[in-house]
Write a protein that binds this DNA or RNA. Structure first.
Lengths: 229, 229
DNA sequence: CAAAGACTGTCGGCTATCCGACAAATGAGG
DNA sequence: CCTCATTTGTCGGATAGCCGACAGTCTTTG
């Protein structure tokens, strides 16, 4: 993979693949790069963001709040992913919060510039379409998890997916150095904080995982994965 | 709205807006139109569909099955919407079922043709992008409903949205002539059939709605809407 | 128009999970 | 190293909603 494409790498697709150099220069011109510390908001609901964001490094969580303090984390994005109001139609602003999880490097550009860029490069637009299709698929997956699985399975599903994104695999074991708080996991899995604590300790008791406040080890990835269905 | 654009009307966006006539002719050439009766499958999981579909008339439900007979309906699509494997990346086929709810008119075209068409028309592609953004938003909405609301509110939410799509508004009352079975509503709201029956009868008892096996009347739309939060 | 099949209504028991409460453990900052 | 704030662990009570069962009602079709 070339430097250029590595830069804009997307989990499954590189949206800038096949883009010529002159265009890449243009892209970098209309883009503002910013380093953002951990646990900082990028945009808030009711504060309609006029920008589209690319995540170059780090991770960002997208969540929604409810009137009472409850929260649900819709998705965690990794390097290369895009967020912001992709459908320019609405004006009301999003109901989403975007917030960094760790130190992140974010490129932003105006919706207008983004739109122009898409109009200018059919290939880029097509890649974006495919990527959005994948994102829709991810949401579908999460929705059916919510509908079909009990809390334990949802938490295991989460651990597996999270390990996939953040972990270092070594043999069958996966180690993750930046773990989330139980509350955060609760938001992700639509469970209560106490239940998360209990379930994690059950899994620890069965020797499937080990964890501290800021790290997680999955002893047998395949085995855990199998328990999620 | 011109005949042409009415033909391809999308709920919120007309993806063929601004398309010149010669291109529209081409579109119609690579497209196969078919009339499909009610409650017929369009594609099934593990039977990877090589096509992209446009819904011209009628309604289609997209759902997922679980090993045990359980089902969740992810979305109900109306005239003008697009479905199929929009992200061409995956080869495994979808886990989705697409099935007509009523008599439908569906246009299908091969993924390849669709992709070529998008490459050929940046504007079209951009419209598609916006539309997919809206679809993502709809999924987000459904996910937070699942996380935050109890069954009663989820059912009310469903009624309101369904009435919006299918109903005829007259004053403050909405009448819907093609209502779903309680089981179907259960699948949509991730509830059990019995609970749906009970909740609907509670709402009837409070004079908010009336229903028979195949019709629904909402007496005061605004009032019901307010109860969903 | 009769018989079979599908849908609706209702009940009672059951259980997963939430929620409040509080104590213990850990970590951060002065 | 002490203090305060945050996170984790555990318990018991409350309950929403699931599930099986079964009866009643409507629909379809031969």
């Amino acid at each position: 993979m070339s430097e250029k494409s590595k830069f804009w790498y997307l989990k499954n697709i590189n949206i800038f693949d096949g883009m010529d150099d002159s265009r890449m220069k243009m892209v970098e011109k209309i883009t503002t790069m910013s380093q953002i510390g951990k646990h900082r908001p990028i945009y808030l609901p009711e504060e309609p963001s006029k920008n589209i964001y690319f995540l170059k490094e780090g991770h960002v969580k997208l969540s929604r709040l409810h009137e009472d303090g409850r929260e649900i984390i819709l998705d965690i994005l990794g390097p290369g992913e895009i967020f912001g109001e992709l459908s320019i139609v609405e004006q009301g602003g999003t109901k989403e919060i975007a917030e960094t999880l760790d130190d992140a490097l974010v490129c932003s550009m105006s919706k207008q510039d983004f739109e122009n860029m898409l109009m200018d490069s059919p290939l880029l637009n097509l890649q974006l379409t495919k990527w959005m299709g994948l994102r829709l698929r991810r949401f579908e997956e999460k929705m059916s998890d919510l509908a079909f699985k009990d809390v334990t399975k949802r938490i295991i599903s989460f651990l597996v997916r999270y390990a996939d994104d953040f972990g270092k695999m070594k043999g069958g074991t996966v180690h993750i150095s930046s773990f989330l708080s139980h509350q955060e996991i609760a938001y992700l899995t639509a469970a209560s904080r106490q239940t998360v604590t209990t379930v994690l300790n059950e899994l620890k008791g069965k020797g499937l995982i080990d964890f501290t406040r800021k790290s997680l080890t999955i002893h047998n990835f395949k085995e855990l994965q199998a328990l999620a269905r």
